[in-house]
Design a protein around this nucleic acid. Structure first.
Lengths: 178, 178
DNA sequence: GTCTATACGAAGATAGAC
DNA sequence: GTCTATCTTCGTATAGAC
């Protein structure tokens, strides 16, 4: 059910992710929603963000110690898979909450996740040999450009933005560029 | 009223932009909404997207013939102003529609706008002396990274992502890099 | 735990008076 | 043109039976 919420969040946004939709999409019994999520929709979306965030962090982790280009490649692959599986319809659940949630608690949690992603990516770059400042710059650029590319691909129904951004980011991750 | 809709769209998303909110934010009389916008909310948001798109294109235009770094600087300034005026709360109206609109007509219009932005930016880079392929790659990267940076700044309440991305994009726009 | 039924509010849209 | 009143739909949340 949490995974279903993530999927809906990523494709239709916060307001498009109603309980009815989540239930219909996952086949979950209706009567037990507030049994499992006493906090209602906020709690469900909170769990969904958590799930999405952990998944992303877990995917990045095995690249620890590898060159920066490998880290970037793995990060790009994560999002390429998302776009591919959804036929360019799904995006980032965290971004969806950031730009369209009325709930300040949820937006704050999205803030935490974004910060964690940046820190994690920057640390992976540091371990791979980059100095702290360029590592943080590269991390911010990679996350921003990738998130933006995903949105553009969804809008334009084309892989072109993603391919262009991927090429650019990989060249930026080459040793000595930043 | 259209400008008010753009503002709400950029800060709260599609579902957060109710007629009541737009009216309250702009002081428009309530009874005449469907007089001016017979198509209802869809028509209002359509007009809002149009307005936002034209504004962006108009801001870019005076950089025609200037070096690519100047074009990028002006584009970045456009978004820096938006973030600054809203204290890191507002974002891109077109992006908001792309990620959270149930209306396929609106999403399609957002697609058109994204395409127009990319084409326009790529043409400015071409005029400034870049070859077609790198011009398109730089255009896609600039738009994606900037849009992503705006979202991250909103999420984290920090200018850090934007500053990092701005520095990276400016170095990418230097002659001969791409 | 899971169900049905229902209360409650929000928001889009329409009708008709002025 | 602008207003008020109202209809309708939808989504969250609760109550209570099984």
């Amino acid at each position: 059910m949490i995974a279903g919420a993530v999927r809906l969040l990523a494709t239709r946004g916060v307001e498009g992710t109603s309980f009815a939709d989540v239930l219909a999409a996952t086949g979950t019994p209706r009567g037990s929603v507030y049994h499992h999520f006493p906090g209602g929709k906020t709690e469900l979306l909170h769990a969904a963000l958590d799930y999405a965030s952990e998944h992303a962090l877990a995917v990045m982790e095995p690249t620890r110690g590898k060159p920066a280009t490998v880290v970037v490649k793995r990060f790009l692959a994560l999002w390429r898979e998302l776009l591919d599986r959804s036929d360019l319809a799904a995006g980032c659940a965290v971004l969806a909450v950031t730009v369209a949630s009325a709930d300040a608690t949820l937006r704050d949690y999205a803030e935490t996740i974004c910060g964690a992603w940046t820190d994690h990516l920057a640390e992976l770059f540091s371990v791979s040999g980059m100095k702290t400042a360029p590592a943080r710059q590269l991390a911010a650029t990679v996350i921003a450009a990738t998130e933006g590319a995903v949105v553009l691909c969804r809008a334009q129904h084309t892989w072109e933005p993603f391919d262009h951004v991927a090429a650019t980011l990989l060249s930026l991750a080459e040793p000595g560029v930043l």
